[in-house]
Simulated assay, not measured.
Amino acid sequence: MTKNANATAEAPVPTVADDAVLILVDVQKGFDRADVWGERNNPDAEANIAALVAAWERTGRPIVLVRHDSVESSPLHPDDPGNAFKDVVAAVKAELLVTKQVNSAFYGTPDLHAWLTARGANQIVIAGIQTNMCNETTARMAGNLGYDVLFPIDAMHTFGLTGPDGDTMTADELSRATATSLHGGGFAKVVRTADLLAATE
C-alpha cells in the first residue's frame, strides 16, 4: 500500500534548537492561480505554516522570509499582484527578507548563508511553496553546506507535473519523491509540523 505523501510515520521526533531559523519560502499569492499551476496538494499547508510562525514568534526564534521575484512573465513577477505574500505570512516580523530569481534561497539577496553564519545558526526549518522546487532545492543546498535541516512536509505544497515521456506525476507523488530523496540522501530530516511544535516547547 502506498503511504500518503504527507505521511512521515517513521520519521524521528526532531530536536529543535533554541536558535533554529524558520525559513518561509515563496508563500506568495501567485501560487493561488490554479489556471497557471494546476492542481495542488495538501490543503492544510497554510494552517501548518501559520502554526509554525506562531510557535517561532512565541518562543522568540528567528524567522526568514524568502520571496521569488520572477524575471519572466509570471504570477510571481514583481509587477504582478501575485508577487505579494499570502496573508498567513504577510504580518510576520522577519529578521531577514531574501529575494531571489532562482530555486535556491541560498542564491538570493542578501546572502542567506552569510547571514546564518554570522549569527552562528546551524539548524534551519524550511516551509513554504513549492515542495519539490524551491523548498527541495534550498534543503539540498543547505544539507551540502552542513546545516541541520528540518523539513516539515505538511507545511508546504506543490503541483502536478508532466515529464519528458508525457506521463504526469501528481502533487502527492512529487511530494513523496521529495521526502524520499531528502531523507534517503541525508539532506534533511523530513518531519511533521505537530512534532516540530511539540519540540519547540
Rank of each mutant, 00 (worst) to 15 (best):
A127T: 06
A118M: 06
T138F: 10
R119L: 02
T131W: 09
T131I: 11
T131N: 14
T137S: 15
R119M: 12
A127K: 07
L150V: 06
D148C: 10
N144R: 15
Y147D: 09
C134I: 11
R140C: 04
A142Q: 08
N135T: 09
N135V: 10
M133T: 11
T137N: 11
T138R: 12
G120Q: 08
I126Q: 00
F151W: 07
A127G: 03
I126T: 04
N144G: 13
M133V: 15
N132I: 06
G128Q: 03
N144Q: 15
N144F: 10
Q123K: 07
N122I: 07
R140T: 02
L145F: 13
A142K: 10
R119I: 05
R119D: 00
R119A: 08
N144C: 13
A118R: 14
A118N: 02
V149N: 00
F151E: 01
T117V: 09
L150F: 00
M133W: 12
L116V: 06
L145V: 08
Q130S: 13
Y147W: 10
M141I: 15
M141P: 00
F151Y: 14
N135L: 13
G143T: 12
I129T: 05
P152N: 05
L145M: 13
Q130F: 11
L145T: 08
P152I: 07
N135R: 06
P152V: 08
I129P: 01
P152K: 11
T138Q: 11
T131K: 13
M141G: 03
G120S: 09
G143N: 08
A139Q: 06
V125Q: 05
N135M: 10
M141E: 15
I126P: 04
M133H: 14
A127I: 01
A139N: 05
A139P: 02
T137L: 12
T117Y: 03
A127N: 02
G143F: 07
A118C: 02
L150M: 08
I129V: 15
T137C: 09
D148N: 11
Q130I: 15
N122A: 14
I129Q: 12
G146Y: 07
I124W: 00
Q123M: 06
G120F: 04
Q130N: 13
Q130L: 14
N144S: 14
T137R: 11
C134H: 08
Q123T: 04
I126C: 01
T137Y: 08
A121V: 04
G128L: 05
A118V: 03
G143R: 06
E136A: 15
N122H: 14
V149W: 00
R140Y: 02
N122G: 14
D148W: 04
Y147F: 15
T131Q: 09
F151L: 02
Y147I: 05
A142G: 14
R140P: 00
R140L: 06
P152M: 11
M141C: 09
V125G: 03
M141H: 14
